[in-house]
């Protein structure tokens, strides 16, 4: 077994254990008693975050030189995507109101890499769960011919340095926080259609808005 095999085997094992841990936590019923439910939900959210970090690590390993190639683009329903993300948010944060919205002009299908897109949106949802006061909205809209999938909350909004970070388009490898957001940007940009490239927009509008725009 060489180092690469060992690395792959360890990763495989870690993933399996993480799935086991997550499914085990997911199988513990809520009791409507805060002393029980609150730590359970915290543990579940943590499980999600660990999974997210692991996926980011794997993506980093794949995304040499900051470029990411999409190999699994297919047609998916934006509506399903929104419903699925909202469901994730609901199940992790019982105390928040979660709204799913699909604008009327959104087509029934769009082409994207579901797995990667989910990863980006989940990161935003985890953040919103941490920062939102009472409400999260997951929405699909059509904007300038692009599909805009957004996660919006009623938090204080992104801090200035994070907004700057996305505006400047810092490379993935630079230090500091904002790793999740940088991955999301990478994923957005990897989505291309003819001459157009996807983009990540972060802004504040009565809370934080995280928007993946896909051509």
């Amino acid at each position: 077994m060489d180092d690469h095999d060992l690395y792959a085997a360890l990763l495989h094992e870690t993933k399996n254990h993480l799935v086991l841990l997550t499914l085990t936590l997911d199988s513990i019923p809520h009791t409507r008693q805060d002393a029980h439910d609150a730590p359970l939900d915290a543990a579940r959210l943590l499980g999600h975050k660990v999974a997210e970090r692991l996926m980011q690590a794997m993506l980093l390993y794949k995304a040499e030189a900051g470029a990411l190639r999409l190999n699994a683009v297919n047609a998916y329903s934006p509506e399903d995507m929104v419903a699925e993300m909202a469901q994730q948010a609901r199940s992790l944060a019982k105390h928040l109101e979660v709204v799913a919205r699909v604008d009327a002009d959104v087509p029934p299908i769009w082409f994207f890499d579901r797995n990667l897109l989910q990863m980006a949106l989940m990161n935003a949802i985890h953040n919103s769960i941490s920062y939102a006061r009472a409400r999260i909205e997951v929405r699909a809209a059509l904007s300038d011919g692009m599909l805009a999938l957004s996660v919006r909350d009623d938090s204080d909004g992104y801090p200035e340095h994070i907004l700057e970070l996305t505006a400047q388009g810092l490379p993935l490898q630079s230090n500091g926080t904002g790793l999740g957001i940088r991955f999301a940007r990478l994923i957005a940009q990897a989505h291309r259609n003819e001459e157009r490239e996807g983009e990540l927009r972060l802004y504040n509008d009565a809370g934080a808005v995280f928007e993946m725009r896909l051509p």
Binding site: V19, T22, L23, R44, A51, M55, Q87, Q88
Partner: peptide, 10 residues
Amino acid sequence: KPFNADIMRT
């Protein structure tokens, strides 16, 4: 992988 029960359900 990794996934959770909600994703599996959907």
